[in-house]
Each structure stands twice: as structure tokens, then as C-alpha cells.
Simulated scan of single mutants.
Amino acid sequence: MEADDRRIVALTELERKIVNALQIHPRASWTLIGDALGIDPDTAARAWAGLTASGRAWMSAHPGLGGPGSPLIAFIEVNCRAGSADAVAQELVPKPRVLTIEHTSGGRDLLLTVLVVDLVALSRLLRDELGATDGVIGTRVHIVTTARTDGADWRLRALDAATARRLAADRPALEIRPERADHRDHDLVTELLRDGRAGFTDLAERTGMSVSTARRRAHRLLASGAVVLRCEVAQPLSGWPVSGSIWCRVPPARLDAVLAGMAGVPEVRVCAAITGGPTNMFASLWLRSAGDLQRLEAQLSERVPDLETVDRAVALVHIKRMGRVLDDDGRAVGLVPVAVS
């Protein structure tokens, strides 16, 4: 009986549409979402409450990446002593600078995504945190120089084009300017990470700000791209249950064009230029099956003759994703607020 209670429940058609709507417009009102989907707003709100309570979907927030003054992101391959990968992963779960932890196949045991303020902080993380973790026997670091797309851009594709356009048109446009969250915004960012749809009155109560201050600061952080909201779904329920990664080599003169082309591939979750090794491009993929990794590689080679795939990996399990602790079924069961230092 206990196993049945813990079994992951598939998304209904309505739940898929609500997740897709919130991927497009994370803070859309339930009135707008209900009108766009042709349902009562209270029905939409109850469905979302059920999704978050079960850990099958959630709203994440993270500092904006890739712009002037933004933090540094890196992918770190971790080799572990035989039999110690799980213990190492659990040791890293509480670390707020380690956003994502994957247990993978291939030439590494774990693949981490980390966020730090600069190269010195990255060195400290490698030396004082990873280097001091029992079971870690080696690391390889890939520093992101340009992130063309990330998981916030990925869509479930459950809505028709007209509904998707309607929701996108209502979403406030970014006001691009070099800005990042400062120490006064830490509590606000943390609360947005806990609940990206929290109302301004709730945000004010939780942070000790006035409602007007919470509204003004949240609008500034979101409009500038200093904070990015993303609606996530448990991957086994997404229709793309397998996660893969590829490390590629592209002629430097072609790198920007290849990144732009990769950003339009439906399976691509993350596509970034990297430095620090023999490859200069990294892509994280969501796939229908493990065999799709080879199919996608072949398609990419045909579309981009200059692209050479040097290494690849399949994630056996995601242990943490963008600060959310996951169970073996991909459900959110805990939270480690993202920190940059």
C-alpha cells in the first residue's frame, strides 16, 4: 500500500496545459489563465495547488545569466571513488552554489551545474568544497562564456499556437539593463524561489518589506532579467523522460551561428559556449528515449556539418535541479535556495 501511495501520477490534459501556460507567463493571473484555457480561474488555481503539493510541478527562480554583471555559471564533471557517487551527491545537495546534480553515464560519475560570483569564488568552491568532499577523486570544469538558451525557455507544447501567443503577449517585456540582485533583495529572491507565484502581500510579509517596496523590487528584478522565473515539471511526466548531455567542438568563427541554430531544436534545454577544455559548446537535452541521443546527434551533424560531438552522457537520475531536491521519480521534495558568492 505504501508503494502505491508514493507512485507518481501522470499529468492530466488540463495539468499539462496549466504547466505550459505558466512556462510562457509564470506570473499570469488565474483569471488570464482560466480565460485562455476556457476554464474557471478557481479550477486553474486548484489544479496548480495539486501539482505543487504533489511535487509534480513547481516554480523556480534563479539569478539571470549571461548579461553584464551576471554571475558565473560552470558545468563540473566529478569523478568519484568506486561506490561513493551517491554519498558524494548527498554531501553536495545542501550546498547553495550547486544548482543541479545529475548522476550520469560515461566518463564522469556526477555532472554539476554551479553558480558563483566570479572565478575566485569558483576556485574556492573547487578547492574548499569539492576538494574536501570525501569520495571525490577528480573534477573537470567547463566555464560558460555565452548561454544562448536555458531551461526557462523549454516548453511542454500542450497549448495551441494561438493560446501560447496570447499568454506571451501579456507577459511584461524585459527591460534590458545591467543589473543584478543586491543583498537587500536576498530574502525576496529566496521567497520567489520558494513560490514564484507568491502575491506581493505574501512577499512583503515574508521579507519584512512594505507591500509597495516588495512590488517595486520584484518588478525591477523580473523586468531587468536579474531574476528569472521558470515553471518546472517532473521530467518523467514531461513526455521527454530521458536527459542527455553532449560536449561539442565547433570552429570558433561558426560558434555563434551554431548556438543560435541549436536554440531552435525542441529537445535542447541548455545550449552554451564553454571554455576550459577541448570542447567549446555544451548542450543539455530532454529526449523521448536513450536511443534518441544518437538520432539527434546524427540530425545535428547533418544540419551543422562543422559540429563535432566529442563526448556524450545520459543522466541516470537527477538528484537536484535548479535548487530543488528531487526524488527518484523527479518530483520536488525539498529546496536549497540558490546563493551566489
Results as ranks from 00 to 15, higher is better:
165 R>Q: 13
171 R>G: 04
11 L>W: 12
269 R>H: 12
334 G>I: 09
103 H>S: 06
181 A>R: 04
234 A>P: 12
268 V>F: 09
273 A>N: 11
111 L>P: 01
228 V>T: 07
68 P>W: 04
272 A>S: 14
339 A>P: 09
263 A>L: 14
116 V>D: 10
66 G>C: 15
334 G>D: 02
17 K>P: 03
144 V>Q: 15
160 D>A: 05
288 R>Y: 10
325 V>F: 11
90 Q>P: 01
250 V>Y: 09
27 R>S: 03
220 R>N: 06
277 G>I: 02
336 V>I: 05
112 L>E: 01
253 A>Y: 10
129 E>S: 11
319 I>G: 00
207 T>M: 01
164 A>Y: 05
156 L>P: 13
12 T>Y: 11
222 L>W: 05
134 D>C: 01
75 F>R: 13
339 A>G: 04
151 G>E: 14
13 E>Y: 03
179 E>P: 04
86 D>L: 00
130 L>W: 02
16 R>K: 15
3 A>L: 14
243 S>Q: 13
181 A>G: 04
33 I>H: 11
230 R>L: 04
252 P>Y: 09
115 L>A: 06
304 V>Q: 08
229 L>D: 06
307 L>Q: 07
27 R>A: 06
70 S>C: 12
125 L>I: 04
19 V>S: 03
222 L>E: 13
330 G>N: 11
86 D>K: 00
25 H>P: 08
34 G>C: 11
244 G>C: 00
225 G>H: 10
122 L>A: 01
9 V>G: 01
267 E>T: 13
238 S>F: 07
79 N>S: 05
212 S>L: 11
251 P>V: 04
279 T>W: 12
7 R>Q: 14
272 A>W: 02
116 V>Y: 02
300 L>D: 03
187 D>L: 11
165 R>P: 10
25 H>I: 05
234 A>V: 07
174 L>Y: 08
58 W>I: 03
325 V>Q: 11
75 F>Q: 14
118 D>M: 00
300 L>Y: 08
99 L>D: 07
